[in-house]
Amino acid sequence: MESKGGFNILRRKVVAFLGALTTAVGAFVLKRKLAAQDGEGKSQPAEQTQESQNGRVHKWGMVIDLDKCTGCGACVVACAVENNMMLGDAQLAEQGRVIRWMYLLPMTEGEYPNIKSRLLPMLCQHCDRPPCVFVCPVTATYKDSEGLVAQVYPRCIGCRYCVNNCPYTIKYFNWGEPEFPQPIPKGFNPDVAVRYKGIVEKCTFCHHRLQIAREKAKAEGREFRPEDYVPACVEACPAKAIYFGDLNDPESEVSRLAHSRRAFKLLEELGTQPKVIYLSEG
């Protein structure tokens, strides 16, 4: 039949066109992924890469003073509430599958009774050379222009290569569907995406609060100030042990403290260049 043949030809052309389109899109994505591996994400919209007052781009970092920290856990719960964290249960806890972006890492050494014990607030170190970014096959994780190591949930394919590669083990995979019995979702923070089964998540330095701070500044017709951007854990700490700010600003408190004689970084010898700096006790 004539029409059938004509339709067949049309069908072939449509499929070929769409196939070519898909290939083109795929090539574009691959190009961006390669670019991201250098540590330079060009994927941010223009208005999010603003320059600080002295013409330099911000580099967000954190300092945690272990001399002040009492291990109370307020930061852990504040982070969970702010970021719509999965709830967990006893069985998942047993399997080590309860996700907490911020948690307290115990470190005890010494012989009884001369013991030295520490509680270390542990979170994503937002490395300048992030091992997780280097291995992601789909650029679901990348480092943005301000140093934040980001996670793009819809892009993540759940291969867990990044979870494996992170030496700090602070990337978490959702092995199951996080359950939020009603009416818990009523209390969700509307600024933060709720994660689902099969993707990886981690601390974002409360990046949503940065976006909000920038929007607020714009709405109020003023410049954005670094002190307007306060992650939830920083705000929560009763000991004021967590500091946050611009490491590119030599006058900022985090820059000053980063050069303290008490300052150290975790697993520094691996060359990950973490942007969370700890201050030892004493």
């Binding site: 291990g71 249960d89 806890a93 047993e94 307290l104 115990p106 509680l119």
Partner: peptide, 18 residues
């Protein structure tokens, strides 16, 4: 409250409900 579980005993191990 699930967010409070796993905080007690953090000096011994991570996030255990037990």
């Amino acid at each position: 409250l699930p967010y409070l579980q796993g905080i007690a005993g953090s000096y011994l191990s991570e996030h255990k409900w037990e």
